[in-house]
Amino acid sequence: MRLPEQVTRLGFVIAAIAALVLLLRFVILPADMFSARPHQAAAVEREMAKPVRHAGVAACRGCHEEQYQEKYGGAHRNIGCENCHGPAAAHAADENVPQPPPSREREFCLRCHAYDAARPNGFPQVDPQEHKPRKKCLSCHEAHDPVPPKTPQECAGCHGRIERTKALSTHALVECSICHAVDERHMTEPRLALPTKPDSREVCGKCHASGSTDPAVSRLTVDLASHGGTYVCWECHYAHLPEGRK
């Protein structure tokens, strides 16, 4: 059976259209119009090529082993160096690129250590207004090994200026505790348990009342009944430097 002429012609036309479609699909139009894969692959490559800014603890340790060990022994052992020091990849790649020093401000430490009810229990926090306001944290705490400073056992640990003044005065050998009663709690919560001041004339009078037999003070005695009226002695005499009269 012979196909009619017009059917054959139509067949050619259809074949030509099909061929054109195939040509467009596979040759002329780019592959990423039909599949997302090629452009996704390019996007992944671009993403992987982005610059690294944080070098990581291992890179810091390569040169700063000493600081690493110091930190490792303390409460900050789990904190990455770049937490405080900032992104350091540029410095790690070339040591001539300076690393900006970390903030030494109080606010910087308080970002973690200021009291916040939402912070987990047991996390060391301070009330910024009660804990040494306006003093830099770093003046007492070493950032790499932030052990809370030990409570000094001598008064001079905190009251150094008074100690130095007293050391030059005639009261140099008088112990603090002779005039001040210091509660044990003053060592840990200084402001909640203040030491006493002499509240009567008799405290100074122990040495300085007339009739004292102490050879060191015998010439500096006064008659408590007639000297100074009702004032307590330190209201006129500065006990830490009695030579300098008020």
Binding site: K50, H54, G56, N83, F123
Partner: peptide, 18 residues
């Protein structure tokens, strides 16, 4: 992604203090 494919930690994990 550029860090983890190089074997580094993501930046947030790297700096998390706790």
């Amino acid at each position: 992604y550029h860090r983890v494919t190089e074997g580094l930690l993501p930046a947030c994990v790297e700096v998390c203090p706790t």
